[in-house]
Simulated scan of single mutants.
Amino acid sequence: MMKKYYFGAIALAMMLFAACGDDGDEDSGTLYDTDITVSLNNFYSTYNYNDTYHDINVTDDYRTFHSENDWYIQTRVLFYNANGVLVDSLLKYTTNTNEVNISKGLPAGKYTVVTTLTFAYKTSGDDASWWWLADKQKLSTAKMNVRDRFTKWSIMSYAATEVNIVSGQRNTIRLNPRPVGALGYLFFQNFQYKNESTYGTVADNNIRALCVYGRNVADSYRLDPNASDHYIYKDDAGSSSWYRLSDKLEPSDFDSSWTYFKSNLYDYFYILSPNPEIFFGYVPKGESSFTGYGQKTVNITSGNTYLAYWDYFQVGNPYFGVANNNQWHTYSQARAAEPGLHYSVIDESTPRAYRFSMFK
C-alpha cells in the first residue's frame, strides 16, 4: 500500500513540473517545432531617393547587390530565454528580399527573439557581415558593431519580439525587421582642381580635401529591446571629438569629365546616431588639417536618405537634410569661383580622423 502512495506522489510531482513548463519556464527536454518567418521587405526599400538631376537612383544601387557585387543578405535570429541567456541562434543567406522561412526545434518556455539583416559575403563565421555581433551570450550585453561607416553597404535592420513556446503545439514566430539608422548620400559639385595650362580656364578653388564630419557618432547598437539607449557612441565618455562620417575625398576621387560645371563627385555613408552634430570639412591648399563649415545638429529618422550637398559656386551654407531634388543649383552662364572662401570657421580642435579597416 505504501508503494502505491509513493509512486502516486512521484506521478503528481511530474504532472506539476510539466504544468510549470507550459507557464513559460524553459523546459530543456522536449523540443517543439517552431516556424520562423522573417520579412526582408524593409531592408533597403525605404532608401528610395531618386536624384533626378544627376540620374542616380539610390535604391537601384542596392538592387544589383548580388548580381554585380556578389553580396548576400544575412538574416540572423537569436533566441534568449526568460533569464536573458542565449539558448540558440541561426544564420541564413539570401540573394533577394523574399521572406526567409526556417523551422527550429525549441524547448517550451518564454523567449525574446531578436533578428538582424545585414549585407555580407556568404562565408562562415561573423567576418562575413558588414556588422559583427559581440557579447551575445546575454541579451543585456549583446550588440552589433558596424565595421565601416563609409559605405552604403553598412545599413542594418532590426526586430525583437517576446514569444511563448507551448509544449505539444507547433508554434509560429513572424518578424518584420525595420531599418536602424539612415543613409547619407553625398554630392559635391564644382570643386575643380586641374592644371589651368593643360585644361583651360578651369577654376582651382584651393581646396585639397573634403569630407563630412560628425560629433555624437554611434558605431554600435544594443539588441535588448528594453535597453534605455540602443546606441553606443564613439568616445562614449564625452562628445568632444569629431569623427569622419564620410570618406575623405581628394581631387583624385573626382569624375573624369572635368567639364567646366561638372567636376562633381558623390558617395555614401551610414548614420547610426539619432542626433548627430555634423559639419562639412575642407582642407585648404598648403594645410593638413580640416576646417569646419555649416555646423548643425540633425534629427535622424531611421530608414530615410539624407543629402549632404555642397556646391562651391553657391555662396552660403551647404545643405544637409532629408534628400530631395530642391537643392540643386543651375546657372544661366559660366562664372568663375569666388576668389575668397565664404566660410564660417568653427573654433574647435583639429578633428580626429577615425577609420575602420574593412573586416579588421
Results as ranks from 00 to 15, higher is better:
Y293T: 04
E99W: 01
A337E: 04
S302V: 00
L12C: 02
D204V: 03
T123D: 10
D253L: 08
T95W: 01
I346H: 02
L307T: 02
L183T: 08
Y49K: 13
L40T: 03
A9W: 00
N275G: 11
L272V: 02
N264Q: 13
N326H: 15
D148Q: 09
Y270G: 07
N50W: 06
N190V: 04
W131D: 04
R352N: 15
T34M: 10
N48W: 09
A9R: 06
D255Q: 15
G8K: 04
E338Q: 14
W130C: 10
R244S: 09
R178F: 02
V315C: 14
E348H: 09
H329M: 11
S240V: 01
D55C: 12
M144R: 09
T297R: 14
Q192C: 15
S257E: 13
K122C: 13
H342C: 07
G214P: 08
D51H: 15
A209S: 13
K3A: 11
G200V: 06
P251L: 03
T95N: 05
N81K: 09
P318Q: 05
S263Q: 13
Y282P: 06
I232K: 12
A334V: 00
T305K: 07
S45Y: 06
K234W: 04
I165R: 13
G181N: 06
G184T: 01
I56L: 14
Y121V: 08
A334F: 02
M144T: 01
V315Y: 13
R355L: 00
A120N: 05
L265F: 08
R335K: 13
W130T: 11
E99H: 10
P318F: 01
G303R: 07
D235C: 11
L210V: 03
S241V: 02
Y213M: 12
S28D: 04
A128I: 01
V217W: 01
A13E: 00
F7P: 04
V166G: 10
S124M: 10
D148P: 03
V113S: 07
P318I: 00
D311Y: 01
N205T: 02
G29E: 00
A308I: 00
F280E: 01
G21E: 00
T198W: 15
Y231V: 04
V58I: 12
D236H: 13
S103D: 09
F79Y: 12
W258S: 14
N264D: 15
G105Y: 04
S246G: 14
Q169F: 11
A308G: 08
F188P: 07
Y80I: 00
Y268V: 01
V315D: 14
G184I: 00
G21C: 08
L40P: 09
S157A: 12
V114Q: 06
A334L: 06
T301G: 07
N317V: 00
N317M: 08
A9I: 00
M1S: 12
S157K: 03
K92E: 04
T97Y: 01
K262D: 13
T172K: 15
N195H: 15
G303A: 06
S45W: 02
T52C: 13
E162S: 15
S263M: 04
S257L: 14
